[in-house]
Design a protein around this nucleic acid. Structure first.
Length: 546
RNA sequence: GGUGAUGUAGCUCAGACGGUUAGAGCGUCGCACUCAUAACGCGAAGGUCGGUGGUUCAAGUCCACCCAUCACCA
């Protein structure tokens, strides 16, 4: 089957419903959204889903502290996150939650399949236990002094200072974060996924899918060490789905989280009006592609555990895993004390989301490197590229068309420059496809430069004073408006709202990628209104102040 | 500590296969223009391509080591 005709299911990593989204999170969502919007403009069949990751000990404990039920807390954050995404113009076809009937049904089904294919075993393990709180403690909930380098206040699994790894009870003077008491070791029976069985399958599989080389070499680290079986159960108290035939045991949140992708698709297909059929987008045949966008911190879950689970359950495996790096702000890790921690909401209160979408696009390549939001660079880049180069084309010639030509574009057009733009569109299209958004933006802005140079050479503001030249002014402005129009299509995946307002200005509708070859001639347009305003130092300061 | 990555003009980044005077945008400075959201155009300054050593007729581009930064370690 032709790649272009396949149905594509795209997912974004599930945000954890235990706190607000910050702009570092937004990197992956904006990248995926741009890619999906580009695919939709190519009229591909594509479904883009996400959901809230609603289970696990941290949510349970936060809820307890706030005196609410964990599902209520998760629900609150789910709504807040969905609003943040939508205000950043992330256009999911469905945003759901892992704490749902659809997900539980899928989890139970997949677990049953895993048991039947002999992928599950029970083992007794020893784990840190807080006697006072009566609960087993995740490693991160035990802190103490590193037994190797003696650094104080380290987590229970590894030392941030020297990198040593150990058991929580190996710490010197270990303390439960919850009660402050020293934890004891207690035995418990856990369910394990036999990950070792999948070692050769996985090594083979990662060479068949679309995944960046540096991610592969990352995965090779784990293959070289050898995969360990994966603990997929947790003891009471825990917030998650109960394991069948067990009273006090739950599925580990990372088992049900990726299954949440499928639950979100299932939920969408259950809505009749969506017109989406589950099997069309998730079944083990050649007609569909499964594409995950994730952050580099969760590579092992998506490229080791998840495909192993799918393989064990006899289901379709991912075809592509696109990994993004992290965001730093002004060269630093985001931090509240350094005024570099920016919540999605604080950003939105003071700045236009499309500024950030453009800046992130400008910084995006197919690799997994981190990138920096330098606030000065951000302001210069956006103001110069979007306002000074692109929007400026419309702004500087629309008045002529309005005042002298009754808002109607001419019949003739300067072909050479237009063809140049159209020819560039294939290359730009390929850059979008390969998620080389940064290169795409640079190429597009070089075209915008050409348009501005063209206007500068033709000087319509001089010619308009000579009535004999009036027709030529019309041709120049018509050409420039067409150049603007083509740039608008190329930038639509990144800045959909500006494009939408641009469509109103140009009196056209729902532009697709192929419309790049259209010519607007003898065509009435509307009065020009500024499509975006510049970023100011004040608006940047304001978002950092939170 | 292990592993992976990064280090090119003030800033952000391009630079298959090693090959003439290392590129772009932004910023800075100068000139010009006045249609445009003090936008746009032209021009200039600015780099011993992290360091050292090696391979080669030739290295930013390959190799080794070192330094710095970042990330991950279930």
């Amino acid at each position: 089957m032709n790649e272009a005709n396949k149905n594509i299911l795209v997912t974004n990593a599930l945000p954890y419903a235990n706190g607000p989204i910050h702009i570092g999170h937004m990197v992956g969502y904006i990248q995926a959204d741009i890619w999906v919007r580009f695919q939709k403009m190519q009229q591909r069949n594509i479904v883009y889903v996400c959901a809230s990751d609603a289970h696990g000990a941290p949510i349970m404990l936060s809820a307890e502290e706030l005196g609410v039920e964990p599902d209520e807390l998760a629900e609150q954050y789910t709504k807040q996150h969905a609003k943040d995404f939508s205000d950043f113009l992330i256009e999911f076809d469905n945003y759901y939650s892992t704490h749902t009937e659809e997900n539980e049904a899928l989890v139970l089904e997949i677990f049953e399949q895993l048991k039947q294919s002999d992928c599950i075993e029970k083992k007794i393990i020893e784990q840190a236990y807080d006697k006072q709180e009566k609960m087993f403690l995740p490693d991160r909930y035990v802190r103490g002094t590193c037994p190797q380098c003696k650094s104080g206040d380290q987590y229970g699994d590894s030392c941030e200072k020297c990198g040593a790894t150990y058991k929580p009870t190996d710490l010197i003077e270990p303390k439960s974060v919850l009660s402050g008491e020293a934890p004891i070791l207690k035995e418990s029976e856990h369910y394990f996924m036999k990950l070792k069985k999948f070692e050769s399958f996985l090594e083979n599989w990662i060479n068949q899918i679309q995944i960046h080389d540096s991610v592969k070499s990352k995965l090779n680290e784990w293959f070289q060490i050898g995969l360990k079986d994966w603990d997929i159960s947790r003891d009471h108290p825990y917030f998650g789905f109960k394991i069948p035939d067990e009273d006090e045991k739950y599925f580990y949140v990372w088992l049900d989280a990726p299954i949440g992708y499928l639950a979100s698709l299932k939920n969408l297909s259950n809505k009749k009006e969506s017109g989406i059929n589950y099997e069309d987008y998730f079944s083990d045949n050649d007609n569909c592609r499964l594409v995950h966008f994730i952050g580099k911190d969760i590579i092992y879950f998506h490229a080791l555990f998840w495909p192993a689970v799918l393989e064990g359950a006899g289901l379709k495996k991912p075809d592509a895993i696109f990994v993004n790096g992290f965001l730093t702000v002004n060269g630093e890790k985001m931090s509240k004390s350094r005024r570099t921690f920016i919540k999605a909401r604080s950003y939105l209160e003071h700045n236009n989301p499309e500024y950030l979408r453009y800046y992130f696009a400008y910084k995006t390549n197919s690799g997994i490197d981190d990138f920096d939001l330098d606030t000065i660079d951000f302001k210069n880049r956006v103001n110069s590229d979007i306002v000074g180069k692109w929007i400026n084309i419309a702004s500087r010639c629309s008045k002529f068309i309005n005042q002298h030509f009754d808002n109607t574009l001419g019949k003739t057009i300067d072909e050479s420059l237009l063809e140049n733009f159209e020819n560039a569109s294939d290359e730009i299209s390929e850059l979008y496809e390969n998620r080389e958004f940064g290169q795409a933006m640079r190429k597009i802005m070089l075209l915008a430069d050409q348009a501005n140079q063209y206007l500068d050479q033709e000087k319509p503001w001089v010619m308009i004073k000579d009535t004999k030249m009036k027709e030529h002014v019309l041709e120049v402005c018509t050409t420039a408006i067409n150049l603007f129009f083509k740039l608008m299509i190329m930038l639509k995946p990144v800045m959909p709202n500006i494009a939408k307002n641009g469509e109103i200005f140009l009196n056209v509708k729902n532009l697709e990628w192929q419309n790049i070859h259209d010519r607007l001639t003898n065509h009435e347009i509307n009065d020009y209104k500024p499509l975006i305003t510049r970023i100011t130092s004040e608006s940047i300061e304001a978002m950092l102040d939170k």
